[in-house]
Write a protein that binds this DNA or RNA. Structure first.
Lengths: 149, 149
DNA sequence: TAATAAAGTTAGGGAACCCTAATAATAATT
DNA sequence: AATTATTATTAGGGTTCCCTAACTTTATTA
């Protein structure tokens, strides 16, 4: 048996957390719709996650995160949110694309880079805002550039 | 047969381009060392790339990119370089980590985000450098923050 | 409640990646 | 040139992720 968790499996845990927040209970069908895959695919991954103690699910029943699963889900969600904010607010990318990109790269960035992104956000938010209005300048610049294409 | 090229396959093409630049000829062994995988694994992927016309290789011979393969390799390399520069110079991440992260996420970012990163680099390089010295400020800030941990 | 609909599970297959072990071919060395 | 060492290839296995089709269980509703 494999000990290591994959990016896809982390995404499943995050999805379960998000669906739980919104719909109270989580079903195979919800996850299948979330990732736009078939139920049988979800089932397979869930069995894997079950085996390793990240989720609990009775046969034909609802899906729940264990403590272990919740910890990972929250962690992924935090990174996801951070990255989305960065890509959207700092880089000036549209909300939808920022969300998509964040989701794809959240598993692949080192702690060092994530920390620096966090600091970048904090820095631009708190320090630079009044001093130079860099975000405003940058966004104006970006939009001018892109619109003129 | 599948038409779509995977991230890993794109990385192979880029690696072949880089090895070619440095060593004139590209062998299975070079690629295996580059990715730290076994020769048999490389062989398998190369067969796939051959079938689809991205590379040419005679049995037991050197590996060469086709036009089609070169186009993709250069494209990946360009993205890779751009991202490394961004992560290293703008975010202030160490060279090695920036390189690693760039390699991992280069396949997953939308054109929109990449364009904005490019503009960000251009913007900070050309416009802000004299005006506010933001890069310098930011790096000082980051390093103070990180050192104090 | 019985019949239909919806959701979950199982079985069987395919593609990408990765490995080990065995074999074939090429390179290097004595 | 013949032997040894290095490289490349093939064969056989394993995991993840995704699918279709068949089947079971749970929900709905007539």
């Amino acid at each position: 048996m494999i000990e290591h968790i994959t990016s896809s499996q982390e995404d499943y845990l995050e999805a379960i957390l998000l669906i739980q927040k919104e719909k109270k209970v989580v079903r195979v069908k919800d996850i299948a719709e979330y990732f736009i895959v078939k139920g049988s695919t979800v089932n397979e991954t869930l069995n894997n996650l079950k085996k390793r103690g990240y989720i609990i699910q009775e046969k034909y029943g609802y899906i729940e995160l264990t403590q272990k699963g919740t910890r990972i889900a929250r962690n992924v969600y935090r990174k996801h949110t951070l990255l989305t904010k960065f890509i959207q607010n700092i880089l000036g990318v549209s909300a939808k694309t920022a969300e998509d990109d964040a989701c794809k790269i959240e598993h692949h960035l080192s702690k060092e880079t994530l920390d620096n992104i966090l600091h970048f956000i904090e820095f631009t938010d708190r320090e630079l805002k009044r001093k130079y209005d860099i975000k405003k300048n940058f966004h104006e610049y970006i939009h001018t550039k892109l619109d003129s294409k």
